[in-house]
Design a protein around this nucleic acid. Structure first.
Lengths: 252, 252
DNA sequence: GCCCGCTGAACTGCATGCAATTGAGGCGCT
DNA sequence: AGCGCCTCAATTGCATGCAGTTCAGCGGGC
């Protein structure tokens, strides 16, 4: 797999990265729900690349825990167990405490503005779908991690945050994540003030309450058509020839 | 990349996993030093597989941060910067505190025996090469992580520990890691006693001192022949046909 | 003698082809 | 009708081939 530079799947114009990002986003927005099948050729066709590339992308996502790969079987969107979800949140708490510890009192004006703008966007998205709210909330944390400019930390926080996000789509009841916005604002304020202990505590309880609100009970899911689902995710750089979508495959 | 089940590169008999494990071990034992080139075909030939598979393995290792992949360029063993090394240790400290917190007072007799046996092995390896000592020390921490039976935690701890290990080969002076053995024993003792706070503190200072002992100054490295270096790492399951080693390629 | 541009071998990026595996539907048996 | 076997289409595992990129080494100009 391949060809994303060391840290996250970043370098534009490598096709593996494009597919990874598209699928990642589709997964965390719950367009692709846990258990949905991801056949290599359908993916390849959808993105206008060969199976080889689709395969690389799936491998990458499997390494991140978003996709499950079993030998000789069709890849599926991962279905983390309740325990794994809990573990992921525990790890996330520690990592994000590290993030805010490094950031406390060190944010530039521009960074603060960026964070505020993001939270404003979260606010505006309240009217929209649940999935978008969840994605934005997750991205707030990733934005924060990015400001540490520690590539390793960024990668781990992103990964575990995406995993948690996936989890939410499995176990949380609808509309349970809205109140988090105020907590985000409080974290920004504490970061600006520079009180390390305070902000670490805030982050800890924020994530803890998200986890507790979320991890309640599983719910069954309906199947949908893969190619159709992916439609809004295929652009990303406008590679022009995102080809036909030929046969329609009922997945799952 | 592919075909290792969700967590670490595990399932035996998938060729990608075999290569990953071999390279990982070669890297952390410093047989493959940072900067050494890893051409896909040489790897493939060495392990008796096609470039495709070698490529998958490299991708996997790149995702773990052990290998650097630049588009259209030969992959090389990663050369983490001093700052990245420091970051990796910071993350590692938090993660391993989580490990011992979960483990304190919960180890079975069998697990304690296993840990003691491992430390004994570390002791015996004192006479051997530096590289083996470092590998064993790293594996102690991974062994510990495994006992949490949290796949996610295991994966992250392993990854970051390997990274730190790689770092040591770049920045540490020789024979700086020996005294860690006693600290390992102390950690086991505290885990058995079940004092969470104590063992978290021990682990913290242990890793902190390893980091501080280690991160001193870079040193230049000599080049060696890739195929020759890999010889001792090629077995792993005895796939019989690990083929010829035809042309000899000076790497680096 | 030194620097720069050129050329070809080495290598990667990607697609495709073939063999092996899987599992879903159909058929017969009870 | 219900149950199990068998067959075949769908799909993965892997190797190989071709095109494009990189780089090392060489030759010419200054």
């Amino acid at each position: 797999m391949a060809s994303r530079s060391a840290s996250s799947t970043a370098a534009t114009s490598d096709k593996v990265g494009v597919i990874c990002r598209a699928l990642r986003r589709a997964i965390i927005e719950q367009a692709l729900e846990p258990g949905v099948k991801l056949p290599e050729d359908s993916l390849g066709e959808r993105f206008g690349v060969s199976r080889t590339i689709a395969r690389h992308a799936l491998g990458q996502l499997a390494a991140e825990g978003l996709v499950e790969l079993r030998r000789n079987r069709i890849a599926v969107v991962a279905t983390p167990s309740w325990q794994e979800a809990r573990d992921a949140f525990d790890i996330r708490i520690e990592l994000e405490r590290l993030v805010v510890r490094q950031l406390a009192g060190k944010l530039t004006k521009g960074q603060v503005a960026e964070l505020n703008a993001h939270v404003d966007a979260e606010d505006r998205a309240r009217d929209g779908t649940d999935a978008v709210s969840i994605r934005l909330a997750t991205e707030f944390h990733i934005l924060l991690a990015n400001m540490t400019s520690s590539p390793i930390l960024v990668r781990y926080v992103s990964e575990v945050a995406y995993r948690c996000c996936l989890t939410l789509s499995l176990y949380s009841r609808p509309h349970s994540s809205e109140c988090a916005i105020n907590e985000h604002r409080a974290i920004i304020a504490a970061l600006v003030k520079g009180d390390e202990a305070k902000v670490m505590g805030l982050m800890h309880s924020h994530l803890d309450s998200v986890a507790n609100r979320a991890l309640v009970a599983p719910a069954p899911r309906r199947g949908r058509d893969l190619l159709e689902i992916l439609a809004p995710y295929a652009e990303e750089g406008e590679r022009g020839r995102v080809v036909k979508l030929p046969k329609v495959i009922r997945t799952r």
